[in-house]
């Protein structure tokens, strides 16, 4: 595992990071946790000419409660989410998903924002972000812009960042009513990418009906994909087994899995359906448990 040669620097401020990226041009890549980039380099699948290491930049590892949302900085590690009480009390799907990210070693080093920016369709976070309707804050020398997650995820390993932009934080909206969420993942072993993953989020109105619903899927499309039709099945309805089954079927229809070494297309669709239902059941129980 010998990567090709590259240059490297570790600036201590965001300004320096942005300046270096601008100077080094297209061959430069940001190194945060490095849990995807470094293996790709070692396999010689990626050969950046320059790595800008942001780990020495102070003040990017925040998880803060801002009006209406939780802001997660660029250097927040997966394991910080596992441990975060703020996340635990504001977003069940994130808390559920965090221990499923890779393995403990990767979780200690890999970053949430890095994973979101990587746009690996088998990655877990983007489904959770879609279900939560998160927003990505991109920063460049020209300033900041806020990108809804649906617009941020473009395709297979492709995001909508412009050259010279970095992901500075991700903003996860808090529930406005009684809410709950879940992430259900089928993996082959600890540390594996998802064979199928489903993120669900529900909020209940005062009438007990579903006010908001978020459902998104991992590894069954060319990118993490919102099951919009399944969400629409739920909104405005009273939760029931039958309703959740219907949502599961709608999600399965929105999936476009491929038959591969992990399993057949037909089976993956079935798992999407079952996991959507199970995730919604968990989310509902959490929402109902709130006063």
């Amino acid at each position: 595992m010998y990567p090709p040669a590259f240059n490297y620097s570790a600036p201590t401020s965001v300004e320096e990071v942005l300046a270096t990226l601008a100077k080094e041009g297209e061959g430069a890549r940001v190194l945060a946790g490095g849990q995807s980039l470094i293996p790709m380099m070692k396999l010689r699948l990626a050969s950046p000419s320059y790595l800008v290491d942001i780990n020495d930049v102070d003040g990017l590892d925040y998880i803060t409660d801002v009006n209406g949302h939780v802001a997660i900085g660029a250097l927040v590690r997966h394991n910080d989410i596992v441990k975060s009480e703020l996340i635990g009390s504001t977003n069940h799907a994130m808390t559920d998903a965090a221990p499923w990210i890779a393995d403990p070693i990767v979780r200690n080093r890999g970053t949430v924002c890095g994973s979101i920016a990587h746009c690996d369709p088998e990655g877990d976070w983007n489904s959770v972000m879609l279900a939560a309707r998160a927003e990505v804050v991109a920063q460049s020398a020209a300033g900041e812009r806020v990108i809804p997650i649906d617009d941020f995820i473009v395709d297979f390993f492709t995001n909508s960042l412009e050259p010279g932009e970095i992901v500075k934080e991700v903003r996860v909206p808090k529930y406005t009513g009684r809410g709950g969420g879940a992430y259900v993942k089928l993996e082959r072993k600890i540390g594996d990418y998802a064979t199928v993953g489903v993120a669900t989020q529900l909020e209940l109105g005062d009438d007990g009906k579903i006010a908001k619903a978020g459902i998104a899927m991992t590894a069954v499309n060319s990118k993490n994909t919102r099951a919009a039709a399944a969400e629409q099945v739920l909104v405005g309805e009273t939760p029931s087994d039958e309703l959740f089954r219907e949502a599961g079927n709608a999600a399965a229809q929105a999936s476009e899995p491929e038959t591969n070494v992990r399993g057949t297309e037909e089976w993956k669709r079935e798992v999407v359906s079952v996991y959507t239902r199970r995730g919604l059941e968990t989310a509902l129980a959490q929402a109902q448990a709130q006063a």
């Binding site: 393995d103 072993k189 600890i190 070494v261």
Partner: peptide
């Protein structure tokens, strides 16, 4: 198909 430990799965104590 199975040319690395992402595809050729070796169980750990976890599973």
């Amino acid at each position: 198909i199975g040319s690395n430990f992402m595809d050729y799965l070796v169980p750990t104590a976890w599973e």
